[in-house]
């Protein structure tokens, strides 16, 4: 039995302890905003917040999340994610959309830590998130826009 908090609610699951958090979120909790892209932490589509830090849920065994607070795209709240999503909509970042939950999670985590990121900060924070549609030009622009919004 593993007990963790997901989007503010305590959840107990009885699963193989090596089950990746990704599949617990999707198959058990039906939180499908978190996506499967590679299964080996190479693409970032499965990014969630684990105790406030971005984490690849596809390689995070459920056993290591015992007692942790997990936030998925569905549970994200606060000025940073609001600014990021508004900026995403403002210039239509997504194309196919599959990777974008992960992009939004990583971008939000970046702005929580670095309110006014440089291009280099963006490269460092976002290089783990693959977008096969290559929406990178707009991701970069939207993060700068979100940062400006947060500055007020």
């Amino acid at each position: 039995m593993t007990t963790l908090t997901v989007n503010g609610k305590e959840v107990t699951v009885d699963l193989d302890p090596d089950t990746p958090l990704l599949w617990v979120l999707r198959d058990e909790l039906r939180l499908t905003g978190t996506k499967f892209g590679c299964g080996v932490a190479q693409c970032g589509a499965c990014t969630v917040m684990l105790d406030g830090m971005p984490r690849r849920s596809c390689i995070t065994p459920i056993s290591t999340a015992e007692g942790s607070e997990v936030t998925t795209i569905e549970g994200m709240q606060g000025p940073e994610v609001t600014a990021v999503q508004a900026a995403w909509a403002g210039i239509d970042v997504p194309q196919c959309g599959w990777c974008q939950s992960g992009q939004v999670m990583s971008a939000t985590a970046l702005l929580q830590m670095v309110p006014s990121p440089t291009d280099e900060d963006i490269d460092n924070a976002m290089a783990g998130n693959v977008c096969r549609c290559a929406t990178y030009v707009r991701i970069r622009e939207a993060i700068h826009t979100a940062a400006k919004t947060l500055e007020g």
Binding site: Q85, A89, P94, G97
Partner: peptide, 21 residues
């Protein structure tokens, strides 16, 4: 003009095949 599918693709609510249960 803004895309009609951007918001759902930015907040995790867009429904793809793998999301069908």
């Amino acid at each position: 003009r803004p895309r009609l599918d951007t918001v759902a693709k930015s907040n995790g609510t867009a429904q793809f095949t793998m999301d069908v249960y």
